[in-house]
Design a protein around this nucleic acid. Structure first.
Length: 270
DNA sequence: AAAAGCCCCTGGATGC
DNA sequence: TGCATCCAGGGGCTTT
C-alpha cells in the first residue's frame, strides 16, 4: 500500500492530533525490519512535537530525538483514543496522552527506529541517500534531467531507486511513465530535457493528485465496492495487463524489471 | 560508482 | 476441500 501519497495521507490523518502528546508507554511486538534502537521505557515522558515525512519515512519529532517510521510493504498506522488488545500483526504501540499510535504490519518489512537526532548515524543510514522530494520546491525539471543523465539504468528502476527522486513506488512509477509517454525500459541517461520535463510533471501530478484523493491505492481501489465516487484516481496501466489502454485501446503489457512488475502501453509509450 | 540479485515475511489468489 | 505455487504497494545489503 504505502507509496508517498499513502504515507503523506497517513501523516495528515494524525499529525495534528498527536502533536503535543506525552508518551505514557511503548510496546514492541514481533521483530520488525530493524530493532527500535532503544528500550521502550526510554520513550516514556517524551513529548511528540510533530510528524514530518521524508520520502516514505515518517519522522516523529520528540523533545530529545525522533522516531523513524516506515510502513514497508504492508504496514499501516492507526491513531485512536481507544486501546484495544494487540492483534497478531500489531507490532508497535505508542501510548500517549492523546491516543494510541499503532503499527499493524503483517509482513513486517516496516520499522520503527529511534534516533537521538536526524544527524545521528542511525538516522543518516536510512535518510542519507534519499533523493529530492517530488512535491517540494527543489524538484525542478533541469535538476531532474541532470540527475537522470548520470544514470544508465532503465528509467523505471531509476525512479524506484529513490536516490534521484523519492516516494515513487511501483504503482506510481508505471503510472507516471504512462502519463509522460515514456517506455519504462528507456535508459535514464537517454531521456531528453523535454521528455524529462514531461516526466517531472507527470510524477508531481500523479503523486499530488493521489494525495488529494486521500491516497487511494490501486489494488484497494479495484477491490472496493461502491467507491466510485470516492476514488477518482484510476490506474491507466498498473495491474491492467491484457486490458485495453484507456487512451488507445491497445492491450496493456506487463513485464518484469528488477523482480518488480512493470505495466505499460506499447503504443502510448515510446 | 553503478547496476543487478537476494532476501526479509505473511497472506491472498489461483490452480490442480 | 486441501495443498502447492505464485505474487504483492519496499529497500538495504551483497555481489558483480
Amino acid at each position: 500500500m504505502p507509496e508517498l501519497p499513502e504515507v503523506e495521507v497517513t501523516r495528515l490523518s494524525f499529525a495534528d492530533r498527536i502533536a503535543g502528546a506525552r508518551i505514557v508507554s511503548a510496546r514492541v511486538g514481533k521483530p520488525l525490519r530493524w530493532p527500535l534502537g532503544c528500550e521502550p521505557e526510554q520513550l516514556v515522558g517524551r513529548v511528540v512535537h510533530g510528524v514530518r515525512r521524508r520520502g516514505k519515512y515518517l519522522l516523529l519529532d520528540l523533545d530529545d530525538g525522533l522516531l523513524l517510521v516506515h510502513l514497508g510493504m504492508s504496514g499501516s498506522l492507526s491513531f485512536a483514543t481507544t486501546h484495544p488488545p494487540a492483534g497478531p500483526h500489531d507490532h508497535f504501540d505508542l501510548i500517549t496522552s492523546r491516543g494510541v499510535l499503532r503499527l499493524n504490519d503483517p509482513r513486517r518489512f516496516g520499522a520503527v527506529v529511534h534516533a537521538r537526532a536526524e544527524s545521528a548515524p542511525e538516522a543518516v543510514k536510512l535518510l542519507g541517500g534519499l533523493g529530492v522530494e517530488p512535491l517540494g520546491e527543489d524538484f525542478d525539471p533541469q535538476a531532474f534531467h541532470a540527475g537522470l543523465q548520470r544514470r544508465h539504468a532503465p528509467i523505471k528502476q531509476v525512479l524506484l531507486a529513490g536516490d534521484v527522486v523519492v516516494g515513487v513506488g511501483n504503482i506510481y512509477a508505471s503510472e507516471a511513465l504512462f502519463l509522460a509517454g515514456i517506455r519504462p525500459t528507456t535508459r535514464a541517461s537517454r531521456i531528453s530535457l523535454a521528455r524529462a520535463s514531461r516526466l517531472h510533471a507527470a510524477v508531481r501530478d500523479v503523486l499530488a493528485r493521489a494525495v488529494e484523493k486521500g491516497g487511494c491505492t490501486l489494488r484497494d481501489f479495484s477491490n472496493a465496492q461502491g467507491e466510485s465516487g470516492y476514488f477518482q484516481l484510476e490506474a491507466n496501466v498498473y495491474d491492467r495487463a491484457g486490458l485495453p489502454c484507456r487512451v488507445c485501446q491497445a492491450p496493456v503489457r506487463r513485464m518484469v524489471q528488477g523482480q518488480r512488475a512493470t505495466y505499460y502501453c506499447t503504443r502510448c509509450q515510446r
